[in-house]
Write a protein that binds this DNA or RNA. Structure first.
Lengths: 193, 193
DNA sequence: TAAATTAAACAGAACAGTCTAATTATTTAC
DNA sequence: GTAAATAATTAGACTGTTCTGTTTAATTTA
C-alpha cells in the first residue's frame, strides 16, 4: 500500500493542463485543483514549478517515444505506408481533439525554449529520440526504393517532423484540418523515390 | 506639437518584448520599464494587456505584409528565385538574431491561439495576408513553369509558410541553422516544376 | 517509533488594472 | 491675437487578486 497520491498521477494532470493552456498561463493552484491535491503534497514531490514541468515533459517524451517505436515495430505495411498511416492518425487525433493543435513538447519549446534552457534541453532530447525513430523507418523505405535517396534518413525525418509541427501549429488559429491534409499529400508526394 | 509619448513607440516596445519573451511571461510593468512610460500613460492608450497585444500583432502583421509585398515587387529575379532569396534572407536574419526562433505572430498563436480567440483571429488575418502574397509569387512561378503545377498557388504557399515556421520553431531548442538549411534545400527541390 | 506524506494556513512578490491629481495641448470666445 | 475653457495626456500611488514557494503540524505508513 502506497500513500494517497503518487507522482505519476500528478504528472499526467500536468501534461493535460500544460498541453491545453501553456506553461506561464497555468498556476500551481490550477494543477492542485485539477489533481485534487493540497499544496504540501505537490511540493513534497516536486521542487518547483519548473522542475515539475520538466518532469512532465520527460514522462510524456519517453512514453510517446515508446509508443512510436511500438507503432512502427508493429506496423505490417511497407515503410512509407507506415509513415503515412502514422501521420494520418496524428491528423485524425488532432481533429478529434478539436484542433487544439497540441503537442506538449512543441508548445513548451516554442513558448519557453528561448528563456528556459532546462526545458529547451529536455524538449530537444525527446525530439531527437522521436526523429531517430522516424529516421529508421525512412532508412528502410530508402532501402526498398520507396523514398528518395537524395537526402539522408535523418534529414528526411527532420523534414517530416518540422513540417508536421508547422501545420499542426497552423491549426491553432485555423481550426481546420484542410491544411494538414494538404501538407500530407504534398509531403508524401515529394519524398517518394 | 504632440504629447510626450505615442502609441506606435509603445507598440514597438511591445513587439520586441513579446517576441522575445512570450505573452504570459511578460507583465505590463516590464513593458512600462522598457518603454520608459508610467502606467497611466499606458492605460490611456490601451484598454487592457490583451488589447495591447492585439494591437502589437496588428501593427507588426501589417507592416510585415507591406514589407513582403515591396520585397517581391522590387525583386528582379525570377519568381522561384525571389522566393529562394526571401527565405534565404529569413534564415540569415534568424541566425543573426541568435536563433531566437521568433516570429511574433507564430509565437503568439502557438502560445495563446487556443485560449484567446481575439489574438487567434488577429494572427490568422495576417497569416492569410502573407500567404496571399506568397501565393501570387508562386502563381507567377507556375506560369513560367518554374514551380510544379500539381498544387494550387495557395496550397504551395501554405506549404512554404508552415514548413518554414516548423523549422523556425525547431531552432528554438537546437539553436542551429543546419535544420533550416536542410529544409530550404529540400523544399525548393521538391516544389520545382 | 521514525520517516514519509498530507494538509492548509501563511508570506512576500508580482500581477493587471484603478484612481485622483497635475500637467499639457487644443478648442472656443471675444 | 489672446485668454479662458475644455479635453487629452502624464504621473505614480494604490487596490485586490494571484503567483510561487514556505512553514508547521497532523496523519499515515513502514
Amino acid at each position: 500500500m502506497g500513500y494517497k497520491y503518487n507522482k505519476e498521477d500528478i504528472l499526467n494532470v500536468g501534461f493535460d493542463v500544460f498541453r491545453r493552456n501553456g506553461y506561464h498561463n497555468v498556476g500551481i493552484n490550477q494543477i492542485l485543483k485539477e489533481a485534487g491535491i493540497p499544496k504540501g503534497s505537490f511540493y513534497n514531490f516536486f521542487e518547483t514549478k519548473e522542475d515539475f514541468a520538466q518532469q512532465v515533459i520527460k514522462q510524456y517524451g519517453e512514453s510517446n517515444g515508446c509508443w512510436m517505436k511500438d507503432y512502427f515495430d508493429d506496423c505490417s505495411l511497407s515503410p512509407i505506408e507506415c509513415l503515412k498511416s502514422f501521420y494520418a492518425m496524428m491528423i485524425d487525433l488532432n481533429e478529434k481533439d478539436d484542433y487544439s493543435g497540441c503537442c506538449l513538447v512543441n508548445n513548451m519549446s516554442v513558448e519557453v525554449g528561448r528563456q528556459n534552457n532546462a526545458i529547451a534541453s529536455e524538449a530537444n532530447t525527446h525530439f531527437v529520440g522521436w526523429l531517430n525513430i522516424l529516421a529508421s523507418v525512412v532508412a528502410k523505405g530508402q532501402d526498398l526504393k520507396e523514398i528518395t535517396n537524395e537526402f539522408t534518413p535523418l534529414q528526411l525525418a527532420e523534414y517530416l517532423h518540422a513540417g508536421f509541427y508547422g501545420v499542426l501549429s497552423r491549426t491553432k488559429v485555423t481550426r481546420n484540418r484542410v491544411y494538414m491534409d494538404i501538407w500530407f499529400d504534398m509531403t508524401f508526394k515529394f519524398i517518394k523515390a
